[in-house]
């Protein structure tokens, strides 16, 4: 069994149409795909607008604010996460009207709640990139 602290976040494997997302994380910016025709965001990134079926996608910066739509506390994770458990995985509903799967950090597993307001924070990963995480909103 791995010692606490030895866990390692698996690096995301980017695709040809998600380069903008990961490039923006170098500057700790969360960008989302936006369809100008339907005026709607979409996430996860797609190869076209799921609303109008055209490849007219723009990337727009998100506020980083949202609420926990649903969560689970992982008691025994995939091998890379051994030593990290228990940790919180959540579907975060962003103010932009999309949900993103992430971890809620700086929050005990006893305190996590559905509808809890959360804010964006970042964890450095390889090649100067960052992974978007969330923590309880400070307000």
């Amino acid at each position: 069994m791995a010692e606490a602290g030895q866990w390692r976040r698996p690096q995301p494997i980017a695709t040809s149409f998600t380069e903008e997302f990961w490039a923006a994380t170098k500057e700790k910016k969360l960008v989302l795909q936006f369809c100008p025709e339907s005026q709607k965001f979409q996430h996860y990134p797609r190869p076209l607008s799921i609303y109008c079926g055209r490849r007219n996608i723009e990337w727009r910066q998100a506020s980083g604010r949202g609420v926990v739509y649903a969560y689970t506390v992982t008691r025994r994770g995939p091998p890379e996460f051994h030593g990290r458990e228990p940790y919180i995985v959540a579907s975060v509903e962003l103010d932009e009207g999309v949900r993103i799967l992430s971890n809620i950090i700086n929050c005990s597993v006893e305190d996590i709640r559905v509808l809890m307001p959360v804010q964006l924070c970042w964890e450095p990963i390889e090649n100067g990139l960052h992974y978007p995480l969330f923590e309880p909103a400070k307000r």
Binding site: Y44, T72, V89, L115
Partner: peptide, 26 residues
Amino acid sequence: RPEWQWPVGLMGPPGTFGLLTNRYKT
């Protein structure tokens, strides 16, 4: 999965059904 799920350690189907069940409880 490799881009949007594996990096956050969602434990496969039990993870997804965990999200679902907690939402149901609420």
